[in-house]
Amino acid sequence: MAHQNATKRNLQLLACTAPALIVFITMKIIPAVMGFWYSLTSWNGINPKKPFIGLENFREIFTTDSYFWDSLLFTFRYTIWIVVAMNILALLLALGIESQRRGKGVFRTLFYLPNMISLVIGSFMWNFIFTKVLYYMADTWGWSFLDHSWIGDPTFSFYAILTVALWGGTGYIMIIYIAAIQGVPEVLHEAAIVDGATPFQRLRSITLPMIAHSFTICLFITLNNAFQVFDVVYTLTGGGPGRATQVVAINIYEEAFNNSNRFGYATAKSLIVFAIVLVITSIQLTVMKRREQEL
């Protein structure tokens, strides 16, 4: 009887989860499994045959594909910059907003506004600024420090990409920090004020330790997002000039859909990216677990 009951419960469970499982397995699990198979073929996306070539794709990636490694290196560089800059900026903005008596809501609303708009639209607007407005300012007002080829020169296009990414993404991280700061019990601050602590001392000894958990969350949200960046680079520089700002997502996209239609080869690259993301995520989970045990 108990056994029958368990079977019935399992059937009910399966019936309720079936719709979600079906779409999810079709769109996520099967592609992930297929990816492993494709990476071992020289399939070109059109040919019904998918010739098996073993680890040949991986050999080619590791020995000859310097563009891929350049794009990976550039992505790492971009990621480090974004993780550091976005977290510092977002934390400062959150602290700044929370230190005000008036206008908290207005600032929060304005700072989050760029996040509502797709980075595709944002990048095109910034493209106008970088290619037209800044030149105009440099010419008319003599602001020569603006007189650079912001999109055409690799050094400056890197900063252009960073600017737009920060513009479009910081608000979200700031919101998380604000929620954390608001969660710090008011009594702690009151007690510290009675003891004569300066604002800076309270920031260092109360606020920052109390929001350490959100710091971990934000760190890994920015890390994951930055590593998979596509929209902002694709629409702002297209990976150029040349391949100077090509991130790894663009490298894979172009390999599969634009240049050569080498689906098998591009899939092999995407698996390498997958492996890197897995490493990042497992570090994240370990760190988070350790933190929770400490608390």
Binding site: P31, A32, T281
Partner: peptide, 28 residues
């Protein structure tokens, strides 16, 4: 046991980045 298995499948799949599946997904 079944619910734990299904739930883990859903949670673990959140680790799969879109870049890693976009080409096979296009095929499917």
């Amino acid at each position: 046991k079944l619910s734990t298995a299904i739930f883990s499948l859903f949670v673990l799949s959140m680790l799969i980045p879109f870049n890693a599946i976009m080409i096979p997904l296009y095929r499917i």
